[in-house]
């Protein structure tokens, strides 16, 4: 009876810090969106042409993040590589969300043999390690960034399907869903007005999280050279090119830091969505 609730260990103390971290994350995301939508607003340097004489310069006022082995401005290359890096992650997430979400919805709501068949398909997708699955798809379809995006999306279908299925099943057995049926709600009404609205929050949180994971996966695939070839400037590819010049560590660390900060911000926002009241 006593409803005095005790907050789980660890919640307290971060409450004050939460808004700041979330605001910073939004700021990072806004900057990334700006870089991909209008890169020319953020840098005047050309990402594709450099002065060979000015190669491998360390960061300076003129070249904020230094120059690469062809004398190209690294900051400009990162900014101009944003669109491709971010959009492909977005495409991957949308594929995973749409296909996985529908599979999970059908599986969880219809049950029976539909659930069994889809359940086995999900198990199969989970059984092939994500990164390997993406690698197989890319090598079959050809080394292009768009194929990398599709492959990453297909590899994430299972995660979405599994979450959507469990959320739908959890909500379908909720008392308020039965109450709606008693109030005369037919199955379609119950699904659209009660089950989905209650399931969507955690699915959205997963989509945001998966967006970050996709950036990492795509960067990994680009790093291995499975995306568009140079002079493309995908973040992962920039790191791969930079690693051949160990005496110029900024060529690795600058694009790596951009990836880390972006993904960190996205993960923070996912957590915020999941816990926001």
């Amino acid at each position: 009876m006593s409803a005095t609730t005790f907050s789980p260990a660890g919640r307290r103390g971060r409450v004050g810090a939460q808004p700041l971290a979330v605001l910073l994350s939004f700021a990072v995301l806004a900057l990334v969106v700006g870089w991909s939508a209008a890169p020319w607003l953020f840098t005047g340097n050309d990402p594709f042409f450099g002065v060979t004489a000015r190669k491998l310069l360390p960061p300076s006022a003129e070249h904020w993040l230094g120059t690469d082995h062809l004398g190209r401005d690294l900051y400009a290359r990162i900014v101009h590589g944003t669109w491709s890096s971010v959009t492909s992650a977005l495409i991957a997430t949308v594929i995973g969300l749409a296909v996985g979400g529908l599979l999970g919805l059908a599986s969880g709501f219809l049950g029976g043999w539909v659930d069994t068949v889809i359940g086995r398909l999900i198990d199969m997708l989970l059984a092939i390690p994500n990164f390997l699955l993406a690698v197989v798809i890319v090598s079959a379809f050809g080394f292009q960034t768009i194929n990398v995006a599709i492959a990453t999306g297909v590899a994430s279908v299972a995660v979405f399907a599994r979450l959507m299925r469990s959320e739908v099943m959890k909500t379908s057995t909720a008392v308020f869903v039965e109450a709606s049926a008693l109030a005369g709600g037919r199955p379609a009404h119950v699904l659209l007005r009660h089950v989905l609205p209650n399931a969507y929050r955690s699915v959205v949180a997963l989509a945001v999280l998966q967006f970050g994971t996709s950036i990492l996966t795509i960067a990994g695939l680009a790093f291995l050279g499975y995306g568009d070839p140079p002079p493309a400037a995908d973040w992962g590819l920039l790191v791969a090119n930079g690693k051949d010049y160990p005496s110029s560590p900024w060529l690795v660390f600058a694009p790596a830091a951009v990836i880390v900060v972006t993904v960190l911000a996205i993960n923070r926002l996912s957590r915020w969505i999941r816990h926001a009241a």
Partner: peptide, 14 residues
């Protein structure tokens, strides 16, 4: 959370 935001190839290179 921090190390899940770092690409594994970056960890290796570092």
């Amino acid at each position: 959370a921090l190390s899940l935001s770092v690409p594994s190839f970056v960890i290796g290179l570092v």
